[in-house]
Amino acid sequence: MSDTTSQVAPRQAKRLSPRKRAQRTRVIQYGVLVVLVVVAALTIDGRQVQQVFLRPDLVLKTLGPELGAAFLNTIIYTAGAFVLGLAFGTVLALMKLSQVAPYRWLATIYTEFFRGVPAIIVLLAFSLMGVAFPGFSFPFDPYGTVWVALGIVTAAYMSETIRAGIQAVPKGQIEAARSLGMSPGMSMQRIVLPQAFRIVTPPLTNELVLLTKDSSLVYVLGLFASGYELTKFGRNLANTYANITPLVVAGFCYLIITLPLTYLVRRMEAKQRKATR
């Protein structure tokens, strides 16, 4: 194709220089944007939008101690699942690097399974454990159920990240540790893992952001009001008032958690880039 154009090119009356062409695409892009804004302004009724998405009286009704409790529950569900996921993910990562082949297989099967299955199914399955095994219940119910279910799912993702972090530690580090008489286990614990976790802190924080949002899946469980988290709480109110406003407020609450975290990740990544240069 480039052949034919280069043959045809000399015959064309005038060809735009790359700079001119870039300029023209930019003008077109601005043009499209202006048209979209004008169309939106003409068709959308601002008051109606506000009535549906952000009715002031409903905003006030949503804000309150129950929102605070839901906010706290979101954090508790997320934090517990994260801690469990981190611990279990580390074990899985070590299994993946094990000399013992069956450990590697088990860890791989586990990871592939829980990364491939919707988290909501895992959560539902765990919520039915009490039915499947009569008398069985997770400690700190419903927190325990959520922690274990979400922790198991997130461990699958984290294990891949942690494994990559361990492998990113130069092999000279293990050699130095072993040459000082440290056992393989001690070298891993004292020398490799601390460095690996430093490397994977940004991606793990990203995982925490995803987990915060995934904690909203908890709404599928039959919860008592004391266990409501942001999504369940917002959804109930939205149903009651037949208005979206409470959900919008809940959404903003998630941003209060996730935006600082993503900002933190960006700062850490920038710092790491500078350090490795």
Binding site: A176, A177, R178, S179, L180, G181, M182, S183, P194, Q195
Partner: peptide, 19 residues
């Protein structure tokens, strides 16, 4: 591990523990 404590090793690339 015990025998290794009797010989120090110094590497070309230092391999200090950066943390």
């Amino acid at each position: 591990d015990r025998l290794r404590t009797t010989m120090g090793m110094v590497f070309q690339s230092f391999n200090l523990f950066p943390h």
